[in-house]
Design a protein around this nucleic acid. Sequence first.
RNA 1: GCGCCAGUAGCUCAGUUGGAUAGAGCGGCAGCCUUCUAAGCUGUAGGUCGGGGGUUCGAUUCCCUCCUGGCGCGCCA
Length: 547
Amino acid sequence: MTPEQILRDALRDAAVALGAPADFQPQLERPRDPSFGDWASNAAMLLARHLKRKPLEIAQDLVTRLDVAKAGVSEAYVAGAGFINFRLAAGAEARGLVDILAGGSTFGRSNEGEQRVVNVEFVSANPTGPLHVGHGRQAAIGDAISTLLEWTGWKVTREFYYNDAGVQIANLARSVQARVRELTTGVAEIPEGGYHGEYIREIARDYVAAHPGDAAGSDLEAIRAFAVSALRHEQDKDLQAFGVKFDVYYLESSLYTDGKVEETVRMLVEGGHAFEKDGALWLRTTDYGDDKDRVMRKSDGTYTYFLPDVAYHLVKWRRGFTRAINVQGADHHSTVTRVRAGVQALGMGIPQGYPEYELHQMVTVMRAGEEVKISKRAGSYVTVRDLIDEVGRDAVRYFLLMRKSDSQLVFDVDVARAQSEENPVYYIQMAHARVCGIFRVGEIDATAITGLNVGWGALVEDDERELVKALLGFPALVTAAARTLSPHLVASYLLETARLVHTWYHKHHVLGEPEPILSARLALARAAQLVLANGLSILGISAPERM
RNA sequence: GCGCCAGUAGCUCAGUUGGAUAGAGCGGCAGCCUUCUAAGCUGUAGGUCGGGGGUUCGAUUCCCUCCUGGCGCGCCA
């Protein structure tokens, strides 16, 4: 048992003896300020109301009844409004480092998901242009969430949904067609709602080169297929440069060719949730909390985007994904209610919160002190590729992950580039590299360190005890981040842990120290190396051994 | 007008079921390299946690209200 578990049990027993409910669960936390001890509990405050006594008195009674010698407690005392603080003897917690050393690259993993399956859909950009920085945020978040779920025992399928059907694709095809004709006529008539980017011109040139018989651009279907293929290829290259891999690419068009859309309509109509009005077919989404009903088949016979979305999630469910997470931009938040409504209306007993949505706020790109307007149609935006080329994959990943999804993100390209030597990701990587340097210079095989014969009591410095606590907290951090789908917690944790590593490294030497300090510090260095590398890998960031 | 998200140091942002003296990076100031990487460390300055109410032993955290910003409110996606 860890000291934490022993303390919790002892607190519960003492509290029950004082009259607390038998199911009382005392909470232990790491005090922000190390001067408040290694562990602290607010149990007395929580019991104050139930016992109708002052927190301070209860705390005092609890302390006198506690049997915590087993946990290595050197001191237990009451402080503040009724906190009980525990200070542990040197080495009492450091003993736990053997778990890190034994766990190695798997330390921090758990099996909370019990190998259940989950589908994580992200990026899902229309193949109408290169991936911009907003897609980059989705890629970074989606990939990190997927990894977090894998670390906590879920079987994850990373999925990319291609909206390769519908109005936007038609606009794309006609835009390319216009550029093809421009090559011979010199006049470009970009259609209403069309795309103006320079890449459209390039696709047009490539199309003509590949289809010399259609210099007039009369075969719109061929142009469409060519353009979609070209852009998918470009997006694949962007994702490859970013280091993101998908297990499944699902094509919206297949929902039509496989009859899934028709089947979905049939199910909704038969379920009695659809009605005709103004020549269109509507779904009564107000039955499921929407503020107005939604059209699913327009009066011209085509479908609105949301019907294939419902069909898609029907397919996801049937594929066995009892859990599905969609990572999308906040500009899609109106779809949440209606897609869920559609899924509910299918009457298949799919849970109400299906699918889950992880919406992230918008990314603003600053360049030269001015906001870069992101507009694919106007052809002005910053692509994922641009950012990777300018500041590197690791820095882009970290910057896009360091903020919680709910925060708007300002990505200042100039700052990211100019400060690339002093930004957080390098700080974290440097901490890892410095620790690696110890083993390299000392010519020590770090992988052979087990900690089994280490005298942990040698780790007496405050700096190393703080580091030990942080490292041991990694598994709980991973679990919390996975539960709340919050990769930014990992980013914050790594920054704080790197700070502790740098401080410790700077103040206390390892090589050349006498035993038992040498062995204990080598074990601590190895543990730090493993935790930093594991945390970085969750975010998809490399952990270089030297910089 | 309605809905969702946010407002914390000069800037960009963390803050884990409500906890003790609210933190980090960058920027500012003052220091530290014959010792495992100075891409580092130490110290210091900088805050009415948007304003105002409420809930309680205790509120940056929960509730109400107002202000400001972003996003959405389509037979677009």
